[in-house]
């Protein structure tokens, strides 16, 4: 499974802020060409791991490699042409239009003396179309609704045109409809545009439905990883999240669906 291109391998990775170690001695391979979801309780190091994989934080020890190339030996620009990241809750500069925002995604492809090329324009147009934001291109980002804004940011990451895309909680603060829109878009990008996607999600059911590969984190280390159907068991969820539950088959997809056990008061009579 690791033979497909764009696999990320972390070896012996330790990341922390000062004395506070967040991710400890982690060894993990995220398969290329697939959608990986990272789940886990709050403050278990999901976002830190993602930031470490994207080289936004220097690890204290260990390495991160894409197809065997150490990311810390690449130039910042070279890495930005292979891997894009949508941060959690990004804030757009005041007054910037959607198109101007998406154009910034072309930064790693631009040259000092040739700031804007035909390929740049084409990538921006494709990114706007794929995310359905073409009609919004002239509107200021700060006038958009949450769902539209998230699509504009995803368009920026698409314009960057990287085979690898990391998304940090792309569905947080979106209503159900927009969550599904974003996840469908991700899955379509993986299927038709051959992007390898790694995303942090909160909803276990959505993670199981949309991901090919699932990583469950606990206290800065993976508690389990693999195909969602193999990983998501009621024992694991109770163990990691501390929530007694049943795992049933999703009536739509057959993927695991986590149903927390009800307290006596709410139980079906």
């Amino acid at each position: 499974m690791t033979n497909a291109p764009n696999a990320i391998t972390a070896e012996n990775l330790r990341i922390g802020y000062g004395r506070n170690t967040i991710v400890a001695d982690l060894d993990l391979t995220l398969p290329g060409g697939q959608v990986t979801a990272i789940v886990g309780p709050n403050a278990c190091g999901k976002s830190t791991l993602l930031r470490g994989l994207a080289r936004l934080i220097a690890p204290e020890t260990g390495t991160v490699a894409i197809d065997g190339d150490d990311v810390h030996r690449m130039s910042a620009r070279a890495l930005a042409r292979r891997l894009g990241l949508l941060p959690q809750q990004p804030v757009a500069p005041e007054g910037i239009s959607v198109e101007a925002l998406v154009r910034l995604g072309r930064y790693p492809h631009q040259r000092a003396l040739r700031p804007w090329s035909a390929a740049d324009s084409a990538a921006v147009e494709t990114a706007l179309e794929r995310t359905g934001t073409t009609a919004l291109r002239d509107l200021p980002v700060d006038h958009l609704s949450g769902g539209q804004r998230q699509r504009a940011w995803i368009a920026l990451a698409l314009a960057q045109d990287t085979p690898l895309l990391l998304l940090d909680e792309p569905t947080t603060f979106l209503d159900l409809r927009h969550q599904i829109d974003v996840l469908d878009l991700v899955s379509e990008l993986n299927a038709t545009a051959d992007r390898t996607v790694v995303m942090v999600l909160h909803d276990l059911g959505q993670a199981a439905r949309y991901a090919d590969h699932l990583v469950v984190m606990r206290d800065g280390a993976p508690a389990a990883f693999g195909a969602p159907a193999d990983v998501l068991t009621s024992e694991l969820v109770e163990d990691v999240f501390g929530v007694p539950c049943r795992v049933v088959a999703d009536p739509e997809t057959g993927t695991p669906l986590v149903v927390p056990r009800a307290s006596a008061r709410h139980r079906r009579p």
Binding site: A76, L85, P87, Q110
Partner: peptide, 23 residues
Amino acid sequence: FALHRRAAVLDLGDDAAGALGVQ
């Protein structure tokens, strides 16, 4: 002026800028 595009990317916040190849 030479630094201008870097500044524009920096406006997106440190993480987004870092992901676009700006330190």
